[in-house]
């Protein structure tokens, strides 16, 4: 199994497209940091518009923790695309190149083959998130310094003291890893049906995008649907920035995501084991 995972990892990191994601994340993080460095006060004034009528806020509002929160919020909407780019290619890419039949003819079980591919895709996902965490959290802390974090929510804002923030980011990145592995497993599942990686990549992204649009719309019918969408649970990394943290709700979301991961991977194995590989 370990040998299979190593081979799959070698294949992933040999492809130039793998590095597009790292480049894109670096570019987005630097652009956001630059934008906030040069004109962050405008953004802050917009967020505080209704607060400023009654209150005066003093201190370093634009600090590394706040910038990291904005980056995390922005990037976690875009990272699924970068993850699907690799995960959606794991099986469909082999089918497209005509190596899938050759691979299946080797003396390894199909379950083992799928699991090794999925684990390799997960390693890639974790590497991408770690890269993102280092750039967005440590980079922003270095550029903007640290202070209390203000988290803006729809009907309130939460102030977290600076010495109570770092662990929340570690936990949030851990939760974000679970979210991204869910997207990865979805793209991976769709990949088993395709002969070309474009289909599963676009398919996975479309599902994530449609769910994101449903979540952001404040229409009662959609609101009823939200608790049943896994994309909604992907957003619960923000639960670590509540005061106090609603651990039961965060755990519920984590379990929903784990359920989806197991479901998508099991379905992939189920379909792949019965698949008549013609390419």
């Amino acid at each position: 199994m370990w040998q299979l995972i190593r081979i799959e990892l070698f294949k992933i990191f040999k492809k130039p497209r793998t590095y597009i994601a790292f480049g894109a994340i670096a570019a987005i993080v630097f652009l956001i940091q630059f934008a906030f460095y040069s004109d962050g006060d405008e953004y802050m004034a917009f967020l505080l518009k209704s607060v400023n009528e009654t209150f005066t806020l003093e201190g370093k509002l634009l600090n590394g923790y706040f910038i990291c929160y904005i980056i995390l919020q922005t990037l976690l909407l875009h990272v699924p695309l970068l993850i699907a780019l690799v995960s959606g290619d794991m099986i469909a890419g082999e089918a497209n190149m005509g190596t899938l039949r050759l691979l299946a003819s080797k003396p390894v079980s199909r379950t083992g083959l799928i699991l090794s591919k999925f684990i390799a895709a997960t390693v890639y996902t974790l590497a991408l998130l770690t890269f993102m965490a280092i750039l967005s959290l440590f980079g922003s802390m270095l550029i903007f310094g640290v202070s209390d974090l203000i988290v803006f929510k729809t009907e309130m804002f939460v102030v977290l003291e600076s010495d109570d923030v770092f662990w929340r980011y570690i936990a949030a990145y851990g939760f974000a890893a679970l979210s991204m592995i869910t997207v990865s497993s979805l793209a991976f599942f769709l990949s088993v049906f395709a002969e070309n990686s474009i289909g599963p990549i676009i398919g996975a992204m479309s599902i994530v995008l449609i769910c994101t649009i449903l979540i952001s719309m404040d229409i009662p019918f959609f609101t009823e649907m939200k608790p049943f969408l896994f994309v909604n649970h992907m957003l619960n990394w923000k639960g670590f920035f509540d005061r106090p943290v609603d651990y039961a709700e965060v755990l519920k979301s984590a379990l929903v995501l784990i359920f989806h991961i197991i479901l998508f991977v099991s379905l992939t194995i189920f379909v792949f084991k019965r698949k008549d590989i013609l390419s």
Binding site: L47, S50, F152, T154, T212, D218, T223, K226, G239, E249
Partner: peptide, 20 residues
């Protein structure tokens, strides 16, 4: 003690988790 006004930001901006 003082009077406060209501505070609200659009959901599209905050993208919050919906508990149900």
């Amino acid at each position: 003690s003082f009077n406060t006004k209501d505070y609200k930001l659009p959901k599209g901006l905050t993208l919050e988790y919906e508990k149900g």
